[in-house]
Nucleic acid binder design. Structure first.
Lengths: 237, 237
DNA sequence: GCTGGAACGTACACTAGCGTACGGAACAAT
DNA sequence: ATTGTTCCGTACGCTAGTGTACGTTCCAGC
C-alpha cells in the first residue's frame, strides 16, 4: 500500500491514516485540531451526537452508568480509533457517556458532515467500519474480563490498554479514576496496585503510574488482554 | 412505511422484515430455511465465517473463551437479529464462538453472497448496520452487568433476554448451561434460581425454567436490563 | 422393573472484594 | 508558613461467590 496521505501530513490517528487519498480528502477540510481536556464530554446518553473525534493522543472512555453512583467503562479509545461509532453505524446517538480520561489532542468533525461524506463515498464508511469491528471486539473482551477476571488481572489489562495509547511509560491516573473504570472500590484498586508494584510490574506515584515491566503485566493479565489488539493489527497492519 | 415484503412472505426475523423490497429481493434467492439444532456451531474463532444466519426462533450465543475451561457469553441473538456482524462490518472472521443455545429454526446464507449483495446495494449494508448498533449496545450492557451486577440480577437479565426471544413462557435450559453463559459456578446458579423461584418470579423444573412474573424479573434486574431493548425498539419500531 | 447417567440440591471451608471510615501525606493556594 | 483539599494507605466486619464434593432425583434405555 502506498504511504498514507494523512500520515504524510503528520496525522497519527490510525483510522485517518488508513483511509484512501480520496476518502481522506473528503474529511480533511472539516477536521478541526483541538485539545482534549480532561473530563471533556464527547457524547451523552440519548442525546444526538454533535461531533466525532479522532484522537492523536490521550484516552477517551466509553462509560455505562449502572446503578446510581456506579459506572463501568465498556470501551476505551485512543489514537487507534475514533468516537462516534454510532454515527458510522448510521445511528445518531448512544446510550453511554463518552469523555476524556487522559488529556491529549486530536481532531473534531461534525457528525452531520461525516454522514454527508458517507453519501458521497460508500467506501469511506466501509473503511471506518473496520475500526468498528475492532471496537466491538474490544467491548466483547471487556465483557469477558469483567465476567471472570480477578481485580489484579483486570487492572493489568486496563493499564496495558492505556499504555498502548500513550507515548512513554507514565500514565497520569488516580486510583479513584481507575476504580470508576473497573467498577470497583477505590480501596480495592490501591491494594491491587500495591500487588503489581510488589512484583515490580509498575511504579506507583501520586496521580501517576509508571509501567516498568510490560511483559510481566501481559503475563499477569493472561487471556484477558490481547484479542482486540490482535484484531487491530490484523485489520490495520 | 408499507408492510414489509419479508413479513408478507411469513418471515419473522426482524432484520429481514426491516429491509426494503429491493434489498430483501437481493437476499431472498440465497436464503435457505433450516433447523438450528442444539449446539450447532455457526462461527469459530479465527476461522473464516462461511454462513450468516437469520433466526426465526431459538437462541444463538456469542461466547468468549477466557481461561481454560472458563467462558462467558458476550452476546445473544434471536429473531431480532443475525449472526455474522463481522461480515456486515466488512471483516471475515471473529474471535469468539457462536453456537445454538436453544434449538429453533431460521435461514442461512453464504457470507460471500452477502458480501456481493453489499456491492450491488449499499443501502443493504446500511440497513443491517442498524442491527449491529443494537448488538453493540447489547454487548456494552453485558460488559456493564458483568462488571457490577450481582448473580441474581445477571440471571434475571439473562432470563429476560431469553424470554424476549422465544414464544411462550418456557425456556429449555439446564443450570449448567446458564452457569456457562454467566461465567459462574453451576451450584451458584442453582441457588440464584431458588431465590427467584422463592419470589415467584419463575418456576424451575428439570431442564426447564418457566417465566411467571416478567415485571418482577425486570424489577430485580434493575438497570442491567432494558437499554439494548430500547435501542431495538427505537431503531426497528 | 432395573440400571446408568444426567441434572439438580446441598454442604463446608475458603477467598475476593465490599462498605465504611479514619488518618496521613502531598500538593496548591493564599 | 498555614490551611484546605485531594489523594492514598489501612483497617474491620461483612457478603457474595468459589472449588470441591457428595447426595438425590429424574428420566431414558434396556
Amino acid at each position: 500500500m502506498a504511504r498514507s496521505v494523512a500520515a504524510e501530513r503528520g496525522f497519527r490517528n490510525r483510522v485517518l491514516v488508513s483511509l484512501s487519498a480520496d476518502d481522506f480528502e473528503l474529511l480533511r477540510p472539516h477536521l478541526v485540531s483541538m485539545e482534549f481536556k480532561l473530563r471533556m464530554s464527547m457524547e451523552e446518553p440519548d442525546t444526538a451526537i454533535e461531533h466525532v473525534y479522532f484522537p492523536e493522543s490521550g484516552i477517551v472512555s466509553v462509560v455505562a452508568e449502572a446503578a446510581k453512583r456506579k459506572s463501568v467503562e465498556v470501551g476505551l479509545i485512543g489514537r487507534e480509533g475514533m468516537t462516534g461509532v454510532a454515527i458510522v453505524l448510521g445511528d445518531d446517538r448512544t446510550s453511554n457517556h463518552v469523555y476524556v480520561q487522559i488529556a491529549g489532542n486530536g481532531h473534531a468533525m461534525p457528525a452531520a458532515t461525516l454522514n454527508r461524506a458517507f453519501g458521497e463515498s460508500p467506501t469511506l464508511r466501509v473503511s471506518l467500519l473496520r475500526y468498528v469491528q475492532v471496537f466491538l471486539s474490544q467491548t466483547m473482551a471487556t465483557a469477558s474480563a469483567n465476567g471472570q477476571g480477578k481485580l489484579e488481572e483486570r487492572l493489568a489489562r486496563w493499564l496495558l490498554m492505556a499504555h498502548d495509547r500513550v507515548d512513554g511509560f507514565s500514565l497520569p491516573l488516580t486510583h479513584e479514576l481507575i476504580a470508576m473504570m473497573l467498577g470497583v472500590r477505590r480501596a480495592g484498586v490501591t491494594i491491587a496496585i500495591q500487588l503489581l508494584e510488589g512484583r515490580s510490574l509498575i511504579k506507583a506515584l501520586r496521580r501517576e503510574i509508571v509501567v516498568r515491566d510490560r511483559a510481566g503485566l501481559e503475563r499477569l493479565a493472561g487471556q484477558t488482554y490481547g484479542t482486540p489488539e490482535r484484531e487491530m493489527k490484523r485489520l490495520f497492519g
